[in-house]
Design a binder for these strands. Structure first.
Lengths: 346, 346
DNA sequence: ATTAGCACTCCTCTTTACAGAGTGCTAATA
DNA sequence: TATTAGCACTCTGTAAAGAGGAGTGCTAAT
């Protein structure tokens, strides 16, 4: 059995209805609300077929039917392939964003906030991942007797700075020497690899500052490799309360608990569309690997600086998400972000 | 009518019971569970008096009674005045905290996390408020052609740094000159007042760098004065789901929505115990000024560096909070924080 | 002053009944 | 042969009714 034109139309009607009403729909209601030119009985037969094909589910015998994950996937693929994604909506966003560009973190946070307000779903964003950035230059600045500020500038133009505590005091001039040596040695290396590089090569050349360097390395590794070093922003968590499928307290708890766990969320975002070609990634319901969000869908897009992906932004919500509205919005806000960041970094 | 010994005992029994069970209790049950040496009938009479005095509430005619805010206040004042606050529990906390002290922000965040785990309530913390800190020295470091890193070290030893974008490029030497001049002029001033000070005095002396300075001032003000500049941490938001009074979805939503609004929470924390003498502040139920949390209690304590209050940490939960357990924990974690921070800053 | 006894109140839980929405099957129809 | 009308059947959600339980306030006895 194949899914023909009419079956597709009926399926689309059911999906459309369920996205809006969150309730099963029966043959009679379909024939009244959607003008398909056939009687409820015919629709019933087709629905029976669609169920057999795995596109529909029946909560119980005498309820109507709802779309399955397979149905959403079909629907979403259709949306994305047609891909007349309307980026006009993005223009409104633009001005607000540009005004807010004090710090990059603020920019990302504001973008997430805007995305949540526009979509009415919970938004998530991760800020530039330093581990994967290449170093452009390194500078160490004295703060007081025992502490220094380590500044690492990446090739994409981002800046990471960390206060470090040393074991002995050291002069400004010596710090300059170390800074220059470090820059020379580390230029072009990945921040995530600082530890390895330093361990092997540098210690030898710079025996004079051995203790200082060891202390530096230890601290850099600690601060760069910790999960804490990935900034995560979420916004509009309480949007989830607005959906009838979350009028159950346990479901809300599971959802919010999941989002409160930073590690989970970061991993989920990282894995989303890990091997997708374009910058958009969509995971639907059961496709999620975490149990807690198997009835959610996740739509994310990457943003880039100088052609390099540095972060992600997207939304999470019930499986019956308004894909046709959300996909263009996520797409366009990520493009806006990329554009603004590129402008900022020249 | 005065509240005598026996009334107080009955009241305490009711408070104790309600804190644990979250349910009204009647005279018969009290006489069975708490050995007061009088019959239910007597207890009934006393309860009637206590209600008249405003210490008890009756959800409906044939329910038992629950404590009023006035009752909690009496109870908590008793606890705090007896103040044999047991800081032994703090010792366990200590080691975990010391290990985590990479960045100060991380320390505060971890403290909040530990506090939530220990108390089983939602914890909140605000990190050092820069506005109120005095400047020790200022350093400007070049990042690339058009950007510099502004580092401000405060007298208490904290460091604030901000990336700034300039309108024209400037040499390293010139930056050093500016840094030194700024340090000289700004030493001892409040960060929050940088704008005022610079506007009046400095521009005249440093005409050469007028444009650079103006750009700097604009950016510093923006980054210091924005509400964003107060770091807020919360942990264990989902603890609220564990309390039976929050098995109602609307109440949970109101609570979480409130906490999601950073401005609200910061203001609430700032106002808590605004004019209290010691470092501990407790707001009970209706005493809260925000409608959304009038059935919550807030317990916070300040932490200090060099005798100066730089932040707050505490918990929020249902009015029937386990005060006798939470108060010492909040107290001791704030003391730990102060101690560790002081050690860190010498 | 305290307490036993009792009528009364109010809430909550369970049971029962019923309306509503939907299905699948069969037989009639185009 | 595909479509449709008709009908018996199923399942859910909700409202009404009733039983049970916990607690109170009052009165009268101790």
């Amino acid at each position: 059995m194949k899914i023909d034109e009419r079956k597709l139309k009926i399926l689309q009607a059911i999906i459309h209805n369920y996205i809006i009403n969150a309730e099963p729909i029966g043959s009679r209601t379909i024939s009244k609300k959607y003008d398909l030119g056939v009687s409820p009985a015919t629709i019933r037969n087709e629905m029976s077929d669609l169920e057999e094909l795995g596109y529909l589910l029946q909560p119980h015998t005498s309820a109507g039917r709802i779309p399955s994950n397979k149905a959403y996937r079909l629907y979403v693929n259709g949306l994305v392939n047609n891909s007349h994604i309307d980026t006009k909506k993005g223009n409104k966003v633009d001005k607000k964003l540009i005004e807010s560009i004090g710090q990059i973190e603020e920019l990302i946070e504001n973008s997430a906030s805007i995305l949540s307000k526009l979509t009415n779903y919970t938004s998530l964003a991760i800020a530039p991942q330093l581990k994967l950035s290449k170093i452009k230059h390194v500078q160490i600045v004295p703060v007081d007797e025992m502490r220094v500020l380590l500044v690492i500038v990446t090739e994409s133009g981002m800046v990471k700075n960390t206060i470090l505590r040393l074991d002995r005091s050291i002069s400004k001039e010596q710090l300059n020497i170390i800074s220059n040596l470090l820059t020379e040695k580390l230029k072009g290396k990945l921040i995530g690899h600082i530890g390895d590089v330093l361990q092997v090569k540098i210690i030898k050349d710079m025996y004079e500052f051995k203790d200082i360097l060891e202390s530096l390395i230890k601290n850099i590794n600690k601060s760069v490799n910790s999960k804490e070093s990935v900034e995560l922003y979420s916004n509009g968590i309480t949007k989830i309360f607005d959906f009838p499928e979350y009028n159950n307290i346990d479901r809300v708890k599971a959802f919010i608990s999941f989002l409160e766990n930073k590690d989970n969320v970061i991993e989920m975002l990282m894995n989303n569309g890990f091997n997708s070609m374009n910058n958009l990634a969509i995971t639907i319901g059961e496709e999620n690997s975490y149990e807690e969000i198997k009835n959610c869908s996740l739509i994310t897009a990457t943003y880039k600086v100088n052609g390099k992906t540095i972060g992600k932004i997207g939304v999470i919500g019930p499986t019956r998400m308004e894909y046709s509205k959300v996909i263009p919005l996520v797409q366009s806000i990520s493009l806006d972000l990329s554009r603004i960041l590129n402008k900022y970094f020249e």
